[in-house]
């Protein structure tokens, strides 16, 4: 029996050494050390041995088992390590090949820009107020202090539905609607939306575009609040290093009226084609709500004051992304829209 055990150990170690891959490991284990393996087989003969021979044979059997077990574990590690190394070599890929395509969707650039604007004003407590795209001449003009034939009407080229109804030329009619709904509560809203102007479609003008209007009404709203709010907006939208410039301007529905400029983000104020060589870009038209408009909205102009501002949406997007033709926005060429 001792010979048998030696033979078994020898065979086992040899086969283990000759083994080619990890797939053979369990087979070997079953063959030599399994419940029905060769070692069990041999040791089953222990009972037939004499009492003298048994202890030695038993001891030898344990030795063989331990040797084989240890050899197996060593060899298993060796083989797995070798295989791991081999797999890393054979599993290398050409990392320059493109990845599996993912096809994400894209928000329209105008909406993306609107979201940005909205988020900035939301932080300052301005909420969104919706108003219709088709409105009365009264809301779009008259209640905003723009009577018929008034020179101020030249500022808006209008699409007419009939004598009383227009496609809103700006988001300002929403001011009237909002004030009439909320008075006598204080107001802090923005009014984003689509507007229409009778303009031929060219690289610089569209007949359909987005605007964001802002309106704050309270007991102590000041022009400096307006300037502060606009500066805050411009810095969050265009960068903390922006410099602001406030210019006097004219709008029929604000008094005083101002225009808010910032240094050109392209040339940093040195003057370039985009800023028409002035070094400044317009951020918004704004002003203190005209007392007539406040009254038309239901607020006592002696007790209340307010500011309003209005800005385009496409133009900031054009500046930020180097777009020179506004027609891209509503042509809906996906090759354009998918870039943002």
């Amino acid at each position: 029996m001792l010979e048998e055990l030696s033979q078994l150990q020898q065979d086992g170690l040899r086969e283990l050494q000759a083994m080619a891959g990890s797939a053979e490991l369990p087979v070997w284990y079953r063959t030599y050390l399994g419940r029905k393996g060769r070692l069990t087989d041999v040791l089953r003969g222990l009972g037939k041995l004499s009492a003298d021979e048994r202890p030695e044979a038993g001891k030898r059997g344990n030795e063989v088992k331990q040797v084989l077990e240890e050899a197996f574990l060593r060899r298993q590690d060796e083989i797995r390590e070798a295989e791991l190394q081999a797999s890393m070599h054979s599993g290398a890929v050409d990392v320059t090949l493109p990845g599996r395509p993912v096809a994400p969707g894209h928000l329209h650039l105008s909406i993306r820009t609107l979201r940005k604007i909205r988020a900035i004003f939301a932080e300052m407590g301005f909420q969104v107020y919706d108003s219709p795209e088709i409105d009365t001449d009264e809301n779009n003009f008259e209640l905003l202090n723009i009577p018929p034939y008034h020179p101020a009407r030249d500022m808006w080229d209008t699409f007419w539905v009939n004598d009383q109804v227009v496609l809103r030329t700006h988001t300002s009619p929403g001011q009237i609607r909002c004030m009439r709904e909320y008075h006598p509560q204080p107001i802090r809203v923005i009014l984003p939306g689509k507007c229409y102007r009778y303009e031929q479609i060219t690289p610089r003008s569209e007949h359909q575009f987005f605007q964001v209007e802002g309106l704050a009404v309270g007991h102590h709203i000041r022009l400096t609040d307006l300037i502060g709010t606009m500066s805050e907006f411009a810095r969050k939208m265009y960068g903390a290093e922006r410099r602001m410039r406030i210019r006097s301007s004219y709008f029929p529905f604000t008094e005083p009226s101002i225009e808010v400029d910032m240094d050109c983000i392209l040339c940093r104020g040195a003057g370039c084609r985009v800023c028409k060589h002035t070094g400044w870009l317009e951020v918004a038209g704004a002003g203190m709500v005209h007392p007539v408009v406040l009254r038309n909205g239901g607020y006592d102009a002696e007790e209340w004051s307010g500011f309003a501002f209005g800005m385009g949406v496409e133009r900031p997007a054009m500046l930020q992304h180097g777009i020179e033709d506004i027609r891209y926005f509503y042509n809906n060429d996906l090759r354009f829209l998918q870039q943002f």
Binding site: G125, Y182, P186, G218, L223, D225, S248, E255, I258
Partner: peptide, 25 residues
């Protein structure tokens, strides 16, 4: 006020933030 403001110079006016209470959100 507009006449006074624009000749005085809006650039000379330090910006502020609204001090009125925030309306109902």
């Amino acid at each position: 006020v507009e006449e006074i403001g624009r000749i005085y110079g809006y650039d000379r006016m330090a910006p502020t933030l609204i001090e009125d209470a925030l309306p109902n959100q």
